[in-house]
C-alpha cells in the first residue's frame, strides 16, 4: 500500500539479528510519517521468529526451514515476491553481509531508488514540495564516516540500506506476536547459487569480548613489526590487543582479534583506539564501549566523533610514554 514500510528480517542459525529490531523501530517511525503500516518480511524463518516480530503490523513469511540458510539468489527472489505482493513505499534492509546481497539487486530489478550506508530515513512534511505524495530522504554516511550525505529518494518506491547500530533495537521489540501473519510461496529460481556449509571461525587464544581494557590498533601502526609496541602497552595495562580489519587481512593480527562489522562486537570499560580512522564498519563493533579514547594524527578522523577522549598525536609517542608512565607507577 501507498505508505507501507517493509523491513527485511535478518537471521542466522535460528536467531534474529539485533539489526532487525533496529530496522523495525526505524520502520515504525517512517510508517507513521507516511501514514502506512509496518510489514516485516521473514525469509526462511520459523514461527518462533515471526512471533518476535510483533512490532510489525504484519509478518509475511516466505519459505521455512528449507530456506533457513541464507542464499543471495533464493532470498533475493523471495524478497522480490514480497515486494510484488505488498507494493511498499519503502523497504529497509540492513547494510550487512546479507543485506548487501539483497538491497542493490532489488533496487535495480524493481527500478526503485536506493540509498546505501544509511543512518537515518525520513518521510516528514518538511520535505514535501506541495502536498500530495511525500518524498523520502535518507542520510548516508560516506567516505569512511567523514561526510553525511542527505539524498532525496523521490516520490516513488525506494530501498534504504541501513548501517547496523543506527537506531536503538528496543524501539523495535514488542511483547506480543504480530497482529497478522501471512505466507507466500517461495518463487522458483534458476539455482545458480547453492549454499554448501557454514564455516566456523577458528578459536583464538584470547577472547576480546571478555576484556576490561582493549588496546586496539589500526593501519596507523604501519607495519607488522610495530604491533609489538601495542603489545607492550597492553601488557602494562593488563589488556589485550585488538585491531581493525586491514591488520587482520594483512596477517598482522589473528582474525579473532578483529573488532567491527565482520569481526566481533566488544564493550570493554576502556577502548583505546590507536591509529584507527573510525570507518562505520569499525564503529559498529566498539561504540558501546564505556570509555573510548582515540589517538590519531588526523584531527578530522571520524573516530573523534565517537570517542569520549581524544589525542591528536603520533600513536608511537603516546604508546611509549604511556607504557613507561604505567610501569613507573
Amino acid at each position: 500500500m501507498a505508505g507501507d514500510v517493509l523491513v527485511v528480517a535478518e537471521h542466522l542459525r535460528g536467531e534474529l539479528d539485533d539489526v532487525t529490531f533496529e530496522l523495525l523501530g526505524m520502520g515504525r517511525e517512517l510508517a507513521g510519517q507516511l501514514g502506512g503500516s509496518l510489514i516485516a518480511a521473514l525469509i526462511g524463518g520459523s514461527g518462533e521468529m515471526a512471533d518476535q516480530l510483533g512490532a510489525a503490523d504484519l509478518v509475511v513469511s516466505v519459505g521455512g526451514a528449507d530456506m533457513s540458510d541464507f542464499n543471495p539468489e533464493s532470498h533475493g527472489a523471495a524478497l522480490e515476491a514480497v515486494v510484488d505482493a505488498k507494493s511498499p513505499r519503502a523497504v529497509l534492509v540492513s547494510y550487512t553481509s546479507m543485506g548487501m546481497d539483497l538491497a542493490s539487486t532489488l533496487a535495480v530489478k524493481k527500478g526503485m531508488a536506493h540509498a546505501a550506508f544509511g543512518t537515518a530515513v525520513a518521510g516528514g512534511e518538511n520535505v514535501t514540495p506541495e502536498g500530495g505524495k511525500r518524498n523520502i530522504t535518507a542520510t548516508s554516511q560516506l567516505y569512511g564516516g567523514k561526510m553525511d550525505v542527505v539524498s532525496d529518494l523521490g516520490d516513488g518506491p525506494c530501498v534504504v540500506s541501513v548501517l547496523a547500530g543506527s537506531a536503538p533495537a528496543d524501539a523495535g521489540r514488542a511483547d506480543g506476536p504480530p497482529a497478522a501473519k501471512e505466507s507466500l510461496p517461495a518463487p522458483a529460481t534458476a539455482g545458480h547459487v547453492r549454499f554448501k556449509r557454514l564455516i566456523e571461525p577458528e578459536a583464538g587464544d584470547v577472547d576480546i569480548t571478555a576484556q576490561d581494557v582493549l588496546v586496539a590498533i589500526g593501519r596507523g601502526i604501519g607495519s607488522k613489526d610495530d604491533v609489538e609496541v601495542a603489545e607492550e602497552l597492553a601488557e602494562a595495562l593488563d589488556a589485550a590487543v585488538a585491531g581493525s580489519r586491514p591488520l587482520i587481512d594483512a596477517g598482522w593480527l589473528p582474525k579473532t582479534r578483529q573488532v567491527g562489522k565482520s569481526g566481533l562486537k566488544v564493550s570493554p570499560k576502556v577502548y583505546l583506539a590507536l591509529g584507527i580512522s573510525g570507518a562505520p564498519e569499525h564503529i559498529e563493533g566498539m561504540k558501546s564501549a564505556a570509555t573510548i579514547i582515540a589517538v590519531n594524527t588526523d584531527e578530522q578522523a571520524p573516530i573523534f566523533n565517537f570517542a569520549h577522549y581524544g589525542m591528536k598525536e603520533d600513536l608511537f609517542d603516546v604508546c611509549e610514554e604511556l607504557t613507561e608512565a604505567i610501569e613507573d607507577r
Binding site: 553525511d148 578530522q300 566523533n305 565517537f306 569520549h308 581524544g310
Partner: peptide, 20 residues
C-alpha cells in the same frame, strides 16, 4: 538512480571527544 543529493555535511560531532 533517481536519487539526488540534497546536501553534504561533515557529520555532527555531538559532544565530540574531549581532547587531551
Amino acid at each position: 538512480s533517481g536519487v539526488s543529493v540534497v546536501e553534504m555535511t561533515p557529520p555532527e560531532t555531538g559532544e565530540g571527544a574531549q581532547m587531551l
